[in-house]
């Protein structure tokens, strides 16, 4: 599903270059639930941004579902983000002036899906994440866990190939963290490929596979039998 080979990423200008990713080689199979861990500055967020085509890389190769993700135009990048990838962020990033349904439906808006159809799909997904009764609520009327559920529903609404989550439970208490993690497992159970960046051990433990980054390189990868 995801194939990275010898991926390098630099920040800064020529003289004071910061080598953030130093030759990442990793393959993530379809249907895997993978965690990426690493200390602050290890490059894990940069890696996730590159996986999500939010950021460019300087060397190497990235294949997403057999598609070459190198030197894309903005328009192509937008297409891949929209069609292939669902994002979940630490700070939820819901649009404050749209209610839950509208937030979930937003990616479909960029696919030119009609309003009626969008809202129908959004309602289904809100139901799935357990917020069927909060469809009309504005983000500021929702708790942190509920907001993240809305965000997960939004990530799923386009039926993407991969879900990328950047510290999805970083802003949540431990009880809610477990609930959200449970939700990720459910989604995974439906066959979705999921990559979660986290620094929480318990999240990592809940995943099938763990990739540890250290100083821009993969320190080790461990796989275990799915707890499901």
């Amino acid at each position: 599903m995801i194939q990275l080979s010898n991926l390098h990423k630099y920040y800064g200008d020529k003289n004071r270059q910061l080598h953030v990713l130093k030759g990442i080689d990793v393959t993530i199979e379809e249907g895997e639930l993978t965690a990426i861990m690493g200390s602050s500055g290890s490059g894990k967020s940069t890696l996730l941004n590159i996986l999500g085509i939010l950021d460019h890389f300087d060397e190497g190769r990235y294949l997403l579902d057999q598609q070459e993700i190198t030197k894309l135009t903005e328009k192509q990048a937008a297409y891949f983000r929209n069609k292939f990838i669902g994002f979940v962020f630490q700070s939820f990033n819901l649009l404050s002036f749209k209610n839950a349904t509208e937030n979930v439906a937003l990616p479909l808006y960029y696919q030119k899906v009609g309003r009626r159809e969008r809202n129908k799909k959004a309602a289904e997904l809100l139901e799935m994440v357990g917020l069927g009764d909060r469809a009309e609520h504005m983000p500021n009327q929702l708790s942190g866990g509920q907001k993240q559920r809305v965000a997960i529903a939004r990530a799923l609404v386009t039926n993407p190939r991969v879900i990328l989550a950047d510290e999805p439970t970083g802003a949540l208490d431990s009880k809610t963290t477990q609930e959200i993690m449970q939700l990720f497992k459910e989604v995974h159970g439906q066959g979705k490929t999921i990559v979660i960046v986290t620094h929480e051990k318990e999240i990592a433990d809940a995943c099938e596979r763990l990739i540890v980054l250290r100083d821009g390189q993969i320190a080790n990868t461990t796989s275990k039998v799915s707890p499901l």
Binding site: G52, L54, E74, K75, Y79, N82, L95, P107, Y110, Q111
Partner: peptide
């Protein structure tokens, strides 16, 4: 800015 960034992450093209 954040809103525009989010929209882009969700698949908004520059033309949008």
């Amino acid at each position: 800015t954040v809103e525009i960034g989010v929209r882009k992450a969700l698949g908004a093209r520059p033309i949008n």
